[in-house]
Design a binder for these strands. Structure first.
Lengths: 101, 101
DNA sequence: GAGCCTGTTCGACGATCATGGAACAGGTGG
DNA sequence: CCACCTGTTCCATGATCGTCGAACAGGCTC
């Protein structure tokens, strides 16, 4: 099944902040934000092992930040922008606005 | 000296998010936000020991989220709203907007 | 100066976490 | 069917973290 651990009923502030407070995970979210299409787990630019990546995806999924849709052999990840904006309007914008110098 | 560990030169996203991703610390920030005056360390409504509180203040200070000004016997804490808004405009607003039902 | 109040520092302990390798499970394609 | 490819699960390990009590350090006030 694709149901590793799916999104919670309501977004928890602590869980969301904790999920974003990691360099690898924040980078995953950044890449998802900068992409206009879903990204497969193996297509992310990271320097961590495959199993570590999978663990980070699980954390992001449990926090309700990303959604994973199984599509045949691969798993496509998308940002749950709508839910995120509904609970914490402008959060991702506030976090990534400082990126560009 | 009042210089326990003071604010960093520039705010680090990871440090800020990590500092906010704790129930006790987030509650401290919330109380500071809802107050219009500085609050002494001992005046916060928490259920943790004094030493634990001090440790949380240190974390918030090192992340650049709060500033502590020594005033005689006590230490007055304030939110570094200006610096926070400069680096991550709307971050605190996004986090606390979901508080009220 | 003797207390007292406020906040920090110092271990210490248990829990959580990030990480990686190996084994495993589905799906795809020869 | 037999290789691949993709992603998850299962330990295990080393690091970080939240928590507390006790000791310590300044500043006030009798």
């Amino acid at each position: 099944m694709a149901s590793n651990t799916q999104a919670p009923a309501a977004l928890d502030v602590i869980a969301v902040l904790h999920a974003l407070a990691d360099p690898v995970r924040l980078d995953i979210v950044r890449q998802l934000r900068e992409s206009d299409t879903a990204i497969a787990c193996g297509r992310f630019d990271t320097r961590v092992a495959k199993s570590t990546l999978s663990h980070h995806f699980k954390t992001l999924r449990e926090a309700g930040i990303i959604a994973t849709h199984r599509d045949g052999g691969q798993a496509l990840n998308t940002l749950r922008t709508a839910e995120l904006e509904a609970s914490f309007p402008g959060l991702l914008g506030a976090i990534f606005r400082q990126a560009q110098p």
